[in-house]
Amino acid sequence: MAENADSTQGWNLKIQPTSSFFELRLKELWAYRDLLFLFVRRDFISTYKQTLLGPLWFFIQPLLSSITFTFVFGKIAGIPTDGIPQILFYLTGLTCWNYFSECLTRTSSTFTTNSSIFGKVYFPRMVVPVSNVISNLFRFIIQFSLMLVFLGYYMFTGANVHPGPLILLTPVFLILMAGLGLGTGILVSSFTTKYRDFTFLLSFGVQLLMYTTPVIYPLSAMKNSSYKWLIDLNPMTPVIEGFRLAYLGAGEFTINDLLYSTISMFVLLIVGLLIFNKVEKTFMDTV
Protein backbone atom coordinates (compact mmCIF):
# COMPACT_ATOMS: atom_id res chain seq x y z
CA MET A 1 0.00 0.00 0.00
CA ALA A 2 2.78 2.39 -0.77
CA GLU A 3 1.63 5.66 -2.21
CA ASN A 4 3.52 7.00 -5.18
CA ALA A 5 5.52 3.81 -5.28
CA ASP A 6 5.52 3.36 -9.00
CA SER A 7 4.76 6.78 -10.34
CA THR A 8 6.88 6.29 -13.43
CA GLN A 9 4.14 4.13 -14.94
CA GLY A 10 1.41 6.25 -13.45
CA TRP A 11 0.37 3.71 -10.83
CA ASN A 12 -0.12 5.65 -7.65
CA LEU A 13 -1.45 2.92 -5.43
CA LYS A 14 -0.39 -0.66 -4.94
CA ILE A 15 -2.33 -3.13 -2.87
CA GLN A 16 -0.10 -5.95 -1.71
CA PRO A 17 -0.13 -8.60 0.99
CA THR A 18 2.64 -7.01 3.02
CA SER A 19 4.37 -3.70 2.89
CA SER A 20 7.79 -2.95 4.23
CA PHE A 21 7.79 -3.10 7.99
CA PHE A 22 9.42 0.26 8.52
CA GLU A 23 6.81 2.61 7.26
CA LEU A 24 5.18 5.15 9.53
CA ARG A 25 2.79 6.56 6.90
CA LEU A 26 2.56 9.93 8.59
CA LYS A 27 2.11 11.70 5.25
CA GLU A 28 -1.11 9.83 4.65
CA LEU A 29 -2.31 10.80 8.12
CA TRP A 30 -1.66 14.44 7.30
CA ALA A 31 -3.72 14.13 4.11
CA TYR A 32 -6.67 13.16 6.26
CA ARG A 33 -6.35 16.03 8.74
CA ASP A 34 -9.85 17.30 7.89
CA LEU A 35 -11.31 13.99 8.97
CA LEU A 36 -9.24 14.16 12.15
CA PHE A 37 -10.80 17.44 13.17
CA LEU A 38 -14.27 16.35 12.17
CA PHE A 39 -13.89 13.36 14.47
CA VAL A 40 -12.83 15.65 17.31
CA ARG A 41 -15.83 17.83 16.64
CA ARG A 42 -18.13 14.82 16.57
CA ASP A 43 -16.79 13.57 19.90
CA PHE A 44 -17.22 16.99 21.42
CA ILE A 45 -20.78 17.50 20.25
CA SER A 46 -21.94 13.99 21.01
CA THR A 47 -20.52 14.13 24.53
CA TYR A 48 -22.21 17.38 25.51
CA LYS A 49 -25.52 17.15 23.72
CA GLN A 50 -28.30 15.89 25.93
CA THR A 51 -26.37 15.73 29.18
CA LEU A 52 -27.99 17.96 31.78
CA LEU A 53 -24.83 19.08 33.46
CA GLY A 54 -22.66 18.89 30.35
CA PRO A 55 -18.98 19.50 30.99
CA LEU A 56 -19.72 19.83 34.69
CA TRP A 57 -19.36 16.08 34.94
CA PHE A 58 -15.69 16.46 34.24
CA PHE A 59 -15.36 18.64 37.35
CA ILE A 60 -17.28 16.30 39.57
CA GLN A 61 -15.41 13.13 38.76
CA PRO A 62 -11.86 14.23 39.72
CA LEU A 63 -13.22 16.19 42.67
CA LEU A 64 -14.94 13.14 44.12
CA SER A 65 -11.86 11.00 43.48
CA SER A 66 -9.63 13.55 45.21
CA ILE A 67 -11.93 13.68 48.22
CA THR A 68 -11.98 9.87 48.40
CA PHE A 69 -8.18 9.77 48.16
CA THR A 70 -7.92 12.39 50.89
CA PHE A 71 -9.91 10.18 53.23
CA VAL A 72 -8.49 6.79 52.31
CA PHE A 73 -4.83 7.50 51.61
CA GLY A 74 -4.40 10.77 53.46
CA LYS A 75 -6.45 10.38 56.62
CA ILE A 76 -6.70 6.59 57.10
CA ALA A 77 -3.44 5.31 55.60
CA GLY A 78 -1.56 8.46 56.52
CA ILE A 79 0.55 8.67 53.36
CA PRO A 80 2.49 11.97 53.32
CA THR A 81 1.95 14.55 50.56
CA ASP A 82 5.24 16.50 50.63
CA GLY A 83 3.61 19.08 52.89
CA ILE A 84 1.10 20.04 50.19
CA PRO A 85 -2.61 20.36 51.10
CA GLN A 86 -3.90 16.84 50.48
CA ILE A 87 -6.79 17.62 48.15
CA LEU A 88 -4.61 19.79 45.92
CA PHE A 89 -1.89 17.14 45.89
CA TYR A 90 -4.27 14.41 44.68
CA LEU A 91 -6.04 16.70 42.26
CA THR A 92 -2.76 17.59 40.56
CA GLY A 93 -1.74 13.95 40.24
CA LEU A 94 -5.18 12.90 39.04
CA THR A 95 -5.37 15.62 36.39
CA CYS A 96 -2.24 14.25 34.75
CA TRP A 97 -3.08 10.63 35.35
CA ASN A 98 -6.62 10.91 34.01
CA TYR A 99 -5.44 12.41 30.75
CA PHE A 100 -2.86 9.69 30.26
CA SER A 101 -5.20 6.84 31.19
CA GLU A 102 -8.09 8.21 29.11
CA CYS A 103 -5.81 8.39 26.07
CA LEU A 104 -4.62 4.88 26.78
CA THR A 105 -7.96 3.19 27.33
CA ARG A 106 -9.84 4.91 24.53
CA THR A 107 -7.04 4.29 22.06
CA SER A 108 -6.75 0.67 23.04
CA SER A 109 -10.30 -0.07 21.91
CA THR A 110 -9.85 1.67 18.55
CA PHE A 111 -10.34 -1.40 16.40
CA THR A 112 -13.13 -3.01 18.35
CA THR A 113 -15.31 0.09 18.78
CA ASN A 114 -14.86 1.29 15.21
CA SER A 115 -15.11 -2.01 13.41
CA SER A 116 -18.39 -1.05 11.75
CA ILE A 117 -16.81 1.97 10.07
CA PHE A 118 -13.48 0.27 9.45
CA GLY A 119 -15.29 -2.58 7.74
CA LYS A 120 -16.86 -0.29 5.19
CA VAL A 121 -14.36 2.31 4.19
CA TYR A 122 -10.66 2.91 4.12
CA PHE A 123 -8.87 5.80 5.74
CA PRO A 124 -5.67 5.73 7.76
CA ARG A 125 -6.84 4.12 10.97
CA MET A 126 -4.44 6.25 13.01
CA VAL A 127 -6.86 9.13 12.51
CA VAL A 128 -9.10 7.66 15.19
CA PRO A 129 -6.59 7.33 18.07
CA VAL A 130 -5.08 10.71 17.29
CA SER A 131 -8.52 12.32 17.33
CA ASN A 132 -9.16 10.61 20.68
CA VAL A 133 -6.08 12.22 22.14
CA ILE A 134 -7.22 15.63 20.95
CA SER A 135 -10.80 15.16 22.19
CA ASN A 136 -9.50 14.16 25.59
CA LEU A 137 -7.60 17.41 25.72
CA PHE A 138 -10.87 19.25 26.40
CA ARG A 139 -11.41 17.11 29.40
CA PHE A 140 -7.89 17.75 30.56
CA ILE A 141 -8.36 21.51 30.24
CA ILE A 142 -11.49 21.35 32.40
CA GLN A 143 -9.77 19.35 35.13
CA PHE A 144 -6.69 21.53 34.84
CA SER A 145 -8.72 24.68 35.45
CA LEU A 146 -10.33 23.05 38.47
CA MET A 147 -6.84 22.35 39.74
CA LEU A 148 -5.86 25.99 39.14
CA VAL A 149 -8.87 27.16 41.17
CA PHE A 150 -7.77 25.07 44.13
CA LEU A 151 -4.18 26.21 43.66
CA GLY A 152 -5.31 29.83 43.70
CA TYR A 153 -7.33 29.26 46.86
CA TYR A 154 -4.44 27.65 48.73
CA MET A 155 -1.96 30.30 47.58
CA PHE A 156 -4.40 32.96 48.77
CA THR A 157 -4.76 31.31 52.18
CA GLY A 158 -0.97 31.09 52.47
CA ALA A 159 -0.49 27.34 52.29
CA ASN A 160 2.87 25.79 51.46
CA VAL A 161 2.56 25.90 47.62
CA HIS A 162 5.02 27.62 45.33
CA PRO A 163 4.53 27.48 41.56
CA GLY A 164 7.90 27.79 39.82
CA PRO A 165 9.39 28.57 36.39
CA LEU A 166 9.00 24.92 35.40
CA ILE A 167 5.41 25.89 34.53
CA LEU A 168 6.84 26.82 31.15
CA LEU A 169 7.35 23.11 30.56
CA THR A 170 3.57 22.47 30.75
CA PRO A 171 3.21 21.84 26.98
CA VAL A 172 6.07 19.34 27.18
CA PHE A 173 4.39 17.51 30.05
CA LEU A 174 1.15 17.50 28.12
CA ILE A 175 2.77 16.05 25.00
CA LEU A 176 4.43 13.39 27.15
CA MET A 177 1.14 12.35 28.77
CA ALA A 178 -0.61 12.21 25.40
CA GLY A 179 2.26 10.48 23.63
CA LEU A 180 2.77 7.85 26.31
CA GLY A 181 -0.97 7.15 26.45
CA LEU A 182 -1.25 7.01 22.66
CA GLY A 183 1.82 4.83 22.20
CA THR A 184 0.76 2.31 24.82
CA GLY A 185 -2.82 2.46 23.56
CA ILE A 186 -2.05 1.63 19.93
CA LEU A 187 0.18 -1.22 21.06
CA VAL A 188 -2.60 -2.68 23.18
CA SER A 189 -5.20 -2.09 20.45
CA SER A 190 -3.12 -4.07 17.99
CA PHE A 191 -3.15 -7.06 20.27
CA THR A 192 -6.81 -6.87 21.28
CA THR A 193 -8.02 -7.40 17.70
CA LYS A 194 -6.97 -11.00 17.78
CA TYR A 195 -6.60 -11.87 21.42
CA ARG A 196 -9.45 -10.36 23.38
CA ASP A 197 -7.84 -11.34 26.67
CA PHE A 198 -5.93 -8.09 26.55
CA THR A 199 -9.17 -6.15 26.99
CA PHE A 200 -9.70 -7.71 30.39
CA LEU A 201 -6.10 -7.28 31.37
CA LEU A 202 -6.19 -3.62 30.43
CA SER A 203 -8.48 -2.17 33.08
CA PHE A 204 -6.60 -4.10 35.73
CA GLY A 205 -3.27 -3.09 34.21
CA VAL A 206 -4.16 0.60 34.16
CA GLN A 207 -5.12 0.47 37.83
CA LEU A 208 -1.91 -1.31 38.71
CA LEU A 209 0.05 1.20 36.69
CA MET A 210 -1.47 4.04 38.68
CA TYR A 211 -0.07 2.60 41.88
CA THR A 212 3.42 2.53 40.36
CA THR A 213 3.03 6.20 39.46
CA PRO A 214 3.30 8.87 42.16
CA VAL A 215 -0.37 9.84 42.04
CA ILE A 216 -1.36 9.03 45.60
CA TYR A 217 2.11 9.41 47.11
CA PRO A 218 5.12 11.64 46.47
CA LEU A 219 8.28 10.04 45.07
CA SER A 220 10.14 11.32 48.13
CA ALA A 221 8.11 9.01 50.36
CA MET A 222 9.33 5.98 48.42
CA LYS A 223 13.06 6.51 48.95
CA ASN A 224 13.53 3.38 51.01
CA SER A 225 10.89 1.24 49.33
CA SER A 226 12.02 -1.98 47.67
CA TYR A 227 9.68 -1.13 44.79
CA LYS A 228 11.41 2.18 44.02
CA TRP A 229 12.96 0.69 40.85
CA LEU A 230 9.51 -0.12 39.50
CA ILE A 231 8.36 3.44 40.06
CA ASP A 232 11.52 4.80 38.46
CA LEU A 233 10.98 2.56 35.46
CA ASN A 234 7.56 4.06 34.83
CA PRO A 235 7.93 6.87 32.27
CA MET A 236 4.88 8.62 33.73
CA THR A 237 6.67 9.12 37.07
CA PRO A 238 8.84 12.05 35.96
CA VAL A 239 5.87 13.64 34.21
CA ILE A 240 3.74 13.76 37.35
CA GLU A 241 6.61 14.65 39.66
CA GLY A 242 7.73 17.40 37.28
CA PHE A 243 4.20 18.70 36.95
CA ARG A 244 3.86 18.85 40.74
CA LEU A 245 7.21 20.57 41.10
CA ALA A 246 6.15 23.15 38.53
CA TYR A 247 2.76 23.97 40.03
CA LEU A 248 3.11 23.09 43.72
CA GLY A 249 6.83 23.49 44.27
CA ALA A 250 7.34 19.98 45.64
CA GLY A 251 8.65 17.00 43.71
CA GLU A 252 11.76 15.19 42.58
CA PHE A 253 12.56 15.96 39.01
CA THR A 254 15.75 16.29 36.96
CA ILE A 255 16.43 16.90 33.31
CA ASN A 256 17.58 13.26 32.97
CA ASP A 257 14.16 12.11 34.11
CA LEU A 258 12.57 14.25 31.43
CA LEU A 259 14.91 12.77 28.84
CA TYR A 260 14.01 9.26 29.94
CA SER A 261 10.28 9.93 29.55
CA THR A 262 10.78 11.55 26.16
CA ILE A 263 12.82 8.67 24.80
CA SER A 264 10.30 6.15 26.16
CA MET A 265 7.52 8.06 24.44
CA PHE A 266 9.24 8.01 21.08
CA VAL A 267 10.08 4.32 21.35
CA LEU A 268 6.49 3.47 22.29
CA LEU A 269 5.06 5.62 19.51
CA ILE A 270 7.30 4.28 16.77
CA VAL A 271 6.98 0.63 17.75
CA GLY A 272 3.24 1.14 18.27
CA LEU A 273 2.80 2.77 14.87
CA LEU A 274 4.69 0.03 13.05
CA ILE A 275 2.60 -2.70 14.63
CA PHE A 276 -0.61 -0.72 14.28
CA ASN A 277 -0.01 -0.16 10.57
CA LYS A 278 0.55 -3.85 10.10
CA VAL A 279 -2.54 -4.85 12.03
CA GLU A 280 -4.85 -2.36 10.33
CA LYS A 281 -4.44 -4.18 7.00
CA THR A 282 -5.94 -7.46 8.10
CA PHE A 283 -7.74 -6.83 11.35
CA MET A 284 -11.16 -7.06 9.67
CA ASP A 285 -10.50 -10.78 9.18
CA THR A 286 -10.06 -11.41 12.86
CA VAL A 287 -12.05 -8.84 14.76
Binding site: I15, Q16, V121, Y122, K281
Partner: peptide, 25 residues
Amino acid sequence: KILSRITSPSQGEIRIKGRIASLLE
Protein backbone atom coordinates in the same frame (compact mmCIF):
# COMPACT_ATOMS: atom_id res chain seq x y z
CA LYS B 1 -12.89 -5.36 0.53
CA ILE B 2 -9.45 -5.84 -0.95
CA LEU B 3 -10.02 -3.20 -3.60
CA SER B 4 -11.26 -0.82 -0.91
CA ARG B 5 -8.23 -1.57 1.26
CA ILE B 6 -10.34 -2.77 4.16
CA THR B 7 -8.34 -5.93 4.26
CA SER B 8 -5.27 -6.91 2.32
CA PRO B 9 -4.82 -9.89 0.01
CA SER B 10 -2.87 -12.99 1.03
CA GLN B 11 -1.15 -13.13 -2.34
CA GLY B 12 -0.99 -11.08 -5.49
CA GLU B 13 -1.01 -7.41 -6.26
CA ILE B 14 -3.41 -4.75 -7.41
CA ARG B 15 -2.20 -1.59 -9.10
CA ILE B 16 -4.41 1.43 -9.28
CA LYS B 17 -4.07 4.68 -11.17
CA GLY B 18 -5.92 7.63 -9.76
CA ARG B 19 -7.87 8.36 -6.67
CA ILE B 20 -10.11 5.51 -5.61
CA ALA B 21 -13.15 5.66 -3.38
CA SER B 22 -15.36 2.82 -2.34
CA LEU B 23 -19.00 2.77 -1.42
CA LEU B 24 -19.81 -0.39 0.43
CA GLU B 25 -22.53 1.31 2.39
